[in-house]
Simulated assay, not measured.
Amino acid sequence: MDKRIARRAALVFFVAAAAYFFFILLKLGNPLGALFFRGRKEAPEYVFSYADNQPEDYPTVQGARKFAELVQEKTSGRIRINVFAGGEMGSENEVVEQLQYGGIDFARSSVMMLTEIKPKFNVLQLPYLYRDEKHMWKVLDGVIGEEFKEELEGSGLVALSWYDAGARHFYNSTGPIKCVEDMKKMRIRVANSDMMSAMVEALGARAVPMAYSEVYAALETSTIDGAENNWPSYETMRHYEVAKYITLDAHSRIPEMQLASQATWEKLSEADREVITACAEESARYERRLWEIREQNDRERLTKAGCVITELSSSEQVRFRAAVMSVYQMYCSEYIDVVNRIAQIR
């Protein structure tokens, strides 16, 4: 018994002595001690989730991964963000709901999903609101964009930065759309949005709300004649295979936002919030560059694949915009002052 006790005491002494020895080496700057301690990785203080419903190669997902990478780098690994793409954490509206009660920490969402929470966001998806892409970024990166971010206060969501989602165009399987009359009686798929339905109806077509995942089969079987979306979605979902006619009318430029859950935000120090906000802004600039490259590459590739591209004349652009003015009154009559301010930005 005495021998066993003696051996245990000797072992404890040896371990303690070894630990003290390496501690002294480290304090003295000895490379061996530094190497020993540097090899040990501290566990992160926070591990957060980030949701996106797009596939891995999509610009918004790549932007999300850049955001996570920047946050980990700027906090020396103290904050880690795991990105879940491809709708792994649910649809966009489900993700926004989970953000509100803290089930998900961060996400990328279209402002289309925020209109039920804050109706003022309807302004940002009005058809033909912006003259072009440059006009949109002047609006969103300026005072008006900050006002919309502040609009989410008290909703359980924190706005971090604006992401690009490109311009949305009409595409179909029957023939080129060159004028408003070509829209007549077409069955056009839209997302589950009253405003999008109203826009399509105002142009003389029939709006068919439908899940994004069902569009290819519906085009293939002629259940619908066409749909509307941006270049990357048109390419990624292979809709061009069954709807080769695309008209670049840019009827909507619906931006997207990087969001944080208010519950998550309240866990963080002010310094951490500043770091995360800065990383979100940097990742947004990165995502916008990726989007520009992606749109250009998709257009070139699909042109070679046989897609028929139509660009509206200036006079027809005016006619298309005039046709949807009823939508402005229907959904944004109380925000016409904001619409006018946007129009005045040069």
Score class of each variant (00 low, 15 high):
212 Y>T: 08
205 A>L: 04
216 Y>R: 09
161 S>N: 13
152 L>D: 02
149 K>T: 01
173 S>N: 14
154 G>N: 05
146 E>K: 15
209 P>C: 06
206 R>A: 13
146 E>T: 09
197 S>H: 04
218 A>V: 04
199 M>D: 00
178 K>E: 11
201 E>G: 01
220 E>R: 15
198 A>P: 02
171 Y>N: 05
220 E>H: 11
156 G>K: 04
208 V>D: 09
170 F>Q: 13
162 W>V: 07
203 L>I: 12
182 D>H: 10
146 E>R: 15
173 S>P: 00
174 T>N: 14
205 A>Y: 04
158 V>T: 09
176 P>I: 10
195 M>H: 09
194 D>F: 05
163 Y>E: 14
149 K>Y: 13
203 L>E: 11
207 A>Q: 08
153 E>K: 07
206 R>L: 08
155 S>N: 04
153 E>Q: 10
171 Y>G: 03
189 R>I: 09
173 S>Y: 03
163 Y>S: 07
163 Y>L: 11
158 V>N: 01
157 L>H: 12
164 D>M: 07
167 A>P: 00
220 E>K: 14
210 M>V: 13
198 A>N: 01
195 M>C: 03
200 V>G: 00
202 A>M: 02
202 A>P: 00
186 M>F: 03
146 E>W: 10
203 L>S: 06
202 A>Y: 06
193 S>N: 14
170 F>Y: 15
203 L>M: 13
188 I>T: 07
198 A>K: 09
146 E>P: 01
143 V>N: 05
214 E>R: 04
186 M>H: 00
152 L>Y: 07
154 G>T: 05
148 F>G: 00
147 E>Y: 00
207 A>H: 03
150 E>M: 14
143 V>K: 13
189 R>H: 07
196 M>V: 10
152 L>Q: 08
193 S>A: 13
178 K>W: 10
171 Y>C: 09
213 S>T: 14
161 S>T: 12
164 D>W: 03
208 V>I: 15
209 P>N: 10
168 R>W: 14
175 G>M: 15
216 Y>A: 04
163 Y>H: 15
147 E>M: 02
214 E>D: 04
174 T>M: 09
150 E>T: 05
195 M>R: 13
165 A>I: 07
195 M>L: 15
199 M>H: 06
183 M>G: 03
175 G>F: 12
178 K>Y: 05
